[in-house]
Write a protein that binds this DNA or RNA. Structure first.
Lengths: 177, 177
DNA sequence: TGTATATATGCAAATAGTTGCACATAAAGT
DNA sequence: ACTTTATGTGCAACTATTTGCATATATACA
């Protein structure tokens, strides 16, 4: 499972609370690995047990206390070791494709609506990606860390672009039936 | 969950045994929704409980008995109803992208090897898709059922093509670091 | 005064998916 | 003789994910 590793990766940047991590998963790394805050807190518990992170409570006045999690050398080592293990290809599970596959049993108009919604969602995501790219990576000298994030981001961009193209093509096809 | 629906979809073609379904999930519909035979048998039990399929044992000489599952009118109705419900977008969970995101903590050579393996896997899949397309859909008059399957197949093809392009681009980028 | 949002943590239950095992027969290859 | 492949069904345990709930404080808005 890469949730553990995704968390460790975030913590290589800086020590963070569960809340910070959850926000990261909503914004940056979450584009490649989605996780809810509940999942993150539970996983943090496991990582602490394994000794991959160490956690310390920090008092705050007004707001609830934060628990800051720091990557340990053992955690860093685990991350390196993970990097050499084969990445398993993501399992394709797409309602939409199943619906096309079963077209004769589907409500075509409803399917068209769903296609439209999907396209909009991917469009929104794409815009977000472009904004991040412009803001953080364009016309700037980049170190290895940033180059890696840029490669991931560009893969994300291309993924969304090609997804939108595919959905448009499908829409045309079912429009011409 | 679309596993139930994917099974129902298969059964619209013809009544089948769990074994037949498992083969279908290895070949055709499994390209869009992967499932193991254990998952399928369990789900068939649930579908039977709900009254969406009815099952009857058929004796065979020599081979073990088969249990043939037939779609009921209730099952058909459930399928239609599912088709109007919004398709939820597939959750992206990709080890590889996380690894790029965390490039400075990764073993780059190992990552290159993984990229190569990935490309080969997608290439293999693509070849399979093309073969199916040539064999069943090219230069033939198609009914609605077949047109739907063709659209799904072509989306699969485009998905693989663009995935391979992305992986090649990423390979070039980390080669030039 | 009430409501929504942001900060902050986490349990419990339900659902979904993977992995390992178990039983049973027959044909085809080595 | 032995192994592999194919046919056929299914349980049990484990891992992962989603959804709903629970608690607590502060600020901003209507």
């Amino acid at each position: 499972m890469a949730l553990a590793e995704a968390i460790l990766v975030c913590l290589t940047e800086r020590p963070m609370s569960g809340y910070d991590l959850a926000k990261n998963f909503d914004a940056s790394i979450g584009f490649f690995w989605r996780a809810s805050h509940q999942q993150i807190y539970r996983e943090l518990g496991r990582l602490r047990e394994k000794g991959y992170v160490k956690s310390q409570e920090v008092s705050q006045n007004g707001k609830p206390n934060r628990i800051i999690h720091t990557l340990t050398p053992a955690g860093q080592k685990a991350l390196r070791s993970w990097s050499t293990k084969p990445a398993k290809h993501p399992s394709i599970k797409d309602d939409m494709l199943v619906k096309f596959y079963a077209l004769e049993n589907m409500d075509i108009d409803a399917l068209k609506d769903q296609l439209t919604i999907r396209m909009e969602q991917h469009q929104t995501k794409l815009v977000k990606y472009y904004r991040i790219k412009e803001r953080y990576y364009d016309d700037k000298p980049l170190d290895l860390t940033q180059k890696g994030k840029l490669i991931a981001l560009e893969m994300g961009i291309d993924q969304e672009v090609s997804m939108i193209e595919r959905l448009e093509a499908a829409m045309t096809k079912i429009g011409n039936l």
